[in-house]
């Protein structure tokens, strides 16, 4: 009962914040909507008993990605510029595409009806976070994907620094 209530509140907040994130003309407000939406997702993870992922969601998404987005909004804006209209003139087509996609997903869920088709969920046995940690460093487990993810992150960071730096030539061209 409490779970249902928390789920409904979290889902409503999450979806409204997501709408703010895609509709607001002021991009800083949109980024704040994204932050609230990411927090709502973390609440859903807690309800799903994926506690490690809930914490990782707050640390990685809210703590790092959202801050990066706010920073780049502030970096890529002329000083004193008005926000103006942030929506493409072709937005009705975007709405149509998104609506059709969502309706198709909903029909798929309804046609499959997982609540009837699947057996009731079992309880999560034991300490799932400890088992996840062990599996991530176990050579017989998932150490290879884990290491590939770290190499990917390292490569992405080096690439990002290289691309964003631009060297001395870029420094000159911004001073026009």
């Amino acid at each position: 009962m409490v779970t249902t209530f928390v789920f409904v509140v979290a889902a409503a907040v999450l979806l409204v914040a997501a709408l703010i994130a895609v509709l607001k003309n002021n991009l800083v407000h949109a980024a704040m909507g994204l932050v609230v939406s990411l927090f709502g997702t973390a609440v859903l993870f807690v309800l799903l008993e994926a506690y490690f992922l809930a914490v990782a969601q707050v640390v990685i998404y809210v703590g790092a990605i959202a801050i990066l987005i706010v920073f780049s909004i502030m970096l890529t804006r002329r000083v004193g510029a008005q926000w103006g209209n942030q929506t493409n003139p072709t937005w009705p087509f975007a709405l149509l595409a998104a609506g059709v996609l969502t309706v198709l997903f909903a029909l798929m869920v309804r046609g499959w009806n997982p609540d009837q088709a699947l057996p009731a969920a079992e309880a999560v046995p034991g300490d799932v976070t400890a088992r996840l940690g062990a599996a991530l460093v176990n050579p017989g487990g998932y150490v290879v994907p884990f290491e590939v993810a770290s190499v990917l992150l390292l490569a992405a960071l080096i690439g990002a620094v290289y691309v964003a730096w631009g060297g001395r030539k870029a420094e000159k061209s911004t001073q026009r």
Partner: peptide, 28 residues
């Protein structure tokens, strides 16, 4: 909570995201 509720919320969130990607003007 039934599984389908999560799937529906995720579908709505995905749809909102698709709209944002297609309709927004600013790259960020």
């Amino acid at each position: 909570v039934p599984l389908s509720w999560y799937l529906v919320v995720a579908a709505l969130l995905f749809g909102i995201g698709v709209y944002g990607v297609l309709a927004r003007r600013n790259a960020v």
